[in-house]
């Protein structure tokens, strides 16, 4: 293992925030291995995203801006990333722990007969061996797993952990990739964006979640969304709210939803059941708003405000706007 490949996830010219974080994470590892950072950008709009990658530390930016590949889900990307890894002879592949990232990474890992570490928050490199640090079991334990004397390894990084500051130093060389020529079995018949350009809870640095205490769907698109917007964050939810049909499953935080670790997590009308807790307990700061001061979330929130969410949340949004001027 000498080089690092970063999968830059993008759609129609808009990169995921974690995509740039992957380039920086790849750089951290490659630097210590004495290797290069190769970014891969794929699908229509890739050329525009590749220009943005130039402000991040990649040695080479491999680009395939081809609409013909859009209709086949991940298969052509897997061919390209695994092919590049083999060409480099030894590499760690770094992708964001998103739905597409997991799909690409898991197939690439199998294709390369490589180990895979998920939800990585730090890398440790010693004597040419790369180890990944990941919280497991909903943050119950933190493990360090090394890739055993292998040429290849695959790491899925947790969004929001690796800083992705732009710097001109990158200025990677853009290399055009050849379009795969084989036929692919999976066909996308329709691709519907219900929530265009919305920031996912996994990537947001602030998550404002609502639970059963919010009583219905309205609060999620009004007071909660306003607060999330004021803080530049995303709206999350407990399973109770999702099961009631107030908001879609993509917003659910917890054991059967997404694991998040933002800088700030605000829970309004959420009791803090263990299955919710495991999805958010690694957040840097947790604030809870609940009518009842004796709920489980009071045991692990950094600040617990006892009161009515319907009254406090809009007031808080006003306060945030005032503080930000």
């Amino acid at each position: 293992m000498q080089h690092a490949i970063a999968f830059v996830e993008q759609k129609n010219g808009t990169a995921r925030r974690v995509a740039f974080e992957a380039v920086h994470a790849a750089k951290l590892v490659a630097e210590q291995l004495g290797g290069e950072v190769h970014a891969v950008v794929f699908g229509s709009g890739a050329a525009a995203v590749a220009e943005l990658v130039k402000a991040h530390p990649a040695t080479k930016i491999h680009v395939l801006d081809d609409a013909a590949c859009n209709g086949f889900l991940i298969d052509p990307i897997v061919d390209v990333v695994a092919g590049l890894a083999k060409e480099l002879g030894g590499a760690i592949v770094v992708a964001g722990n998103t739905m597409i990232g997991r799909d690409v990474a898991s197939r690439v890992a199998a294709r390369l007969d490589a180990g895979i570490n998920a939800d990585v928050v730090a890398f440790e490199v010693a004597n040419g061996t790369v180890a990944c640090v990941s919280p497991k079991l909903g943050g119950l334990t933190i493990t360090t797993c090394a890739f055993k004397n292998a040429d290849f390894g695959v790491a899925l990084i947790r969004p929001n952990v690796f800083a992705a500051k732009t710097d001109a130093a990158g200025n990677g060389e853009i290399v055009a990739l050849a379009a795969p020529t084989r036929a692919y079995a999976m066909t996308i018949e329709a691709d519907v964006d219900e929530a265009a350009a919305e920031l996912g809870v996994e990537e947001a640095s602030v998550v404002v979640s609502g639970g059963r205490g919010l009583g219905g769907p309205e609060a999620f698109t009004t007071i909660l969304k306003d607060l999330a917007d004021s803080l530049g964050g995303a709206v999350g939810a407990s399973r109770a709210a999702v099961d009631a049909g107030w908001i879609s499953h993509g917003h659910q935080v917890g054991q059967t939803g997404k694991t998040v670790s933002p800088q700030l997590y605000i829970a309004a009308g959420i009791s803090g059941a263990i299955q919710h807790k495991v999805g958010m307990r690694t957040s840097a700061v947790i604030v809870a708003i609940n009518k009842d001061g004796n709920v489980p979330i009071a045991e692990f929130a950094d600040l617990m405000v006892v009161g009515d969410a319907f009254a406090i949340v809009p007031e808080l949004t006003r306060g945030v706007h005032a503080a930000k001027g």
Binding site: D113, A114, G115, I116, N117, A131, P135, G139, L140, T141, I142, T143, T144, C145, A146, F147, K148, A150, G153, R281, T282, I286, G293, A298, E299, F300, A301, D302, L303, M304, V305, V306, G307, I312
Partner: peptide
């Protein structure tokens, strides 16, 4: 296995924070 557990640590305990009765 292609990965090997080399270390394991417990996360810092998250204690009870401040409680404000508004």
């Amino acid at each position: 296995a292609k990965t090997e557990l080399t270390a394991q640590a417990s996360p810092p305990v998250r204690g009870k924070g401040k409680l404000v009765e508004a």
